[in-house]
């Protein structure tokens, strides 16, 4: 039974505590599966469908990394982590990477000893109000009651915003997003505040979404991105360049549809380097030359992933905004492949 495993584990725990420090890449290859920490359900970013298959914007990053490393986008164990358990799960090695809309902050990067490998979504805190309130700017919210999730950075941002604008507010603390929707609909508060992507998801779920507006002010910077542990730079590089590869692919027009065609060789040397027809970038990462072809084939490039999961045609209906390519006025920018 499992008991023997347990007791055995306890006895060797003391002895082996310092022994196993193989590289994450070797661990993943030996296991044949990527352990990817995702959220315990977030609309558009991570959720299992009716067949139990995980889908979403963050999930797509996990699948792309699995495809690049293991050659199979389904070779992923999705480990749902809560806001409280996500960092320990990563630090203890229970997961190899986190793709769980986590904000890149100084303390998380430096003090918690993680490596944010990039940004896959630029979010920011916003406000939603019922149209009937007749408010068109967050600066008109003086004296409002505000529904807010407790224990998150949104709480601090809110206090800062109202103080710096010399306004007062009354917080209505709530625990979860589902509760927030109910409270807001029941009129327990004048305005609901959380990340703009979360507001869009909440609004999309309302019976009459048109009765509500998201105010234009964004009061905080929430760059969300995948992260790995400090100390294994090779693994960090792999995750970073898979993400950069998806972003560059959009910039250069590589899609899931034409990647096979382009992999036969093109006039663009950067595309050739990315897809392995020139140079040996894959080998430098410790992978083979087709690594990025496989990653792009899974769900397409960054733009395709965005449109399929959270874009304007989905119920979330997020516009690209800050998350457009730098060539189109956004912040999404990958260093060059050379």
């Amino acid at each position: 039974m499992k008991k023997s495993v347990f007791l055995g584990a306890l006895t060797i725990a003391g002895l082996a505590a310092t022994a196993s420090m193989a590289s994450t890449l070797d661990d993943v290859k030996a296991r044949g599966k990527l352990n990817c920490g995702v959220s315990t359900g977030l609309v558009g970013f991570a959720a299992p469908d009716a067949n139990g298959r995980w889908n979403g914007f963050d999930v797509a990053v996990c699948r792309a990394v699995a495809a690049a490393v293991l050659g199979d986008s389904d070779a992923v164990n999705f480990v749902p982590t809560t806001g409280k358990t996500r960092f320990t799960a990563l630090a203890s090695g229970e997961v190899d990477m986190l793709a769980r809309n986590t904000t890149w902050t100084f303390t998380r990067d430096v003090d918690l000893k993680f490596e944010f490998v990039g940004v896959n979504y630029y979010d920011g805190q916003g406000f939603m109000v019922p149209k009937s309130l007749g408010v068109s700017s967050a600066k008109e919210l003086d004296g409002a009651t505000v529904c807010i999730q407790t224990g998150t950075t949104t709480e601090l941002n809110l206090a800062d915003f109202f103080r710096s604008n010399n306004m007062s507010y009354e917080p209505v603390p709530i625990e979860t997003n589902a509760e927030a929707q109910q409270q807001f609909l029941a009129g327990a508060c004048d305005t609901l505040t959380t990340d703009a992507s979360g507001l869009a998801a909440t609004r999309a779920a309302f019976e009459n979404p048109d009765d509500f507006v998201v105010l234009p002010e964004i009061i905080s910077k929430e760059p969300l991105g995948p992260l790995v542990r400090h100390g294994d730079n090779q693994w960090g590089d792999i995750v970073r360049w898979v993400l950069n590869g998806l972003i560059s692919a959009e910039e250069l027009g590589i899609t899931s549809a034409n990647v096979d065609e382009l992999a036969k060789g093109t006039n663009n040397p950067e595309i050739n380097r990315m897809l392995g027809t020139e140079g040996n970038l894959g080998e430098m990462l410790g992978l083979d030359k087709d690594w990025l072809i496989r990653a792009i084939k899974v769900n397409g490039n960054y733009g395709e992933i965005f449109e399929a999961n959270i874009g304007e045609k989905t119920p979330l209906g997020l516009s690209r905004g800050l998350n457009a390519q730098w060539t189109e006025g956004g912040l999404i920018y990958s260093p060059p492949f050379r």
């Binding site: 359900g41 558009g44 959720a47 358990t85 999309a204 309302f206």
Partner: peptide, 22 residues
């Protein structure tokens, strides 16, 4: 609360599906 998918955990996962959000 620790991320295991018990019935309440599944409620949350299902709510996170865009089709059943809300």
């Amino acid at each position: 609360i620790i991320g295991l998918a018990d019935p309440l955990g599944w409620v949350k996962l299902i709510q996170a599906d865009a089709a059943w959000n809300g």
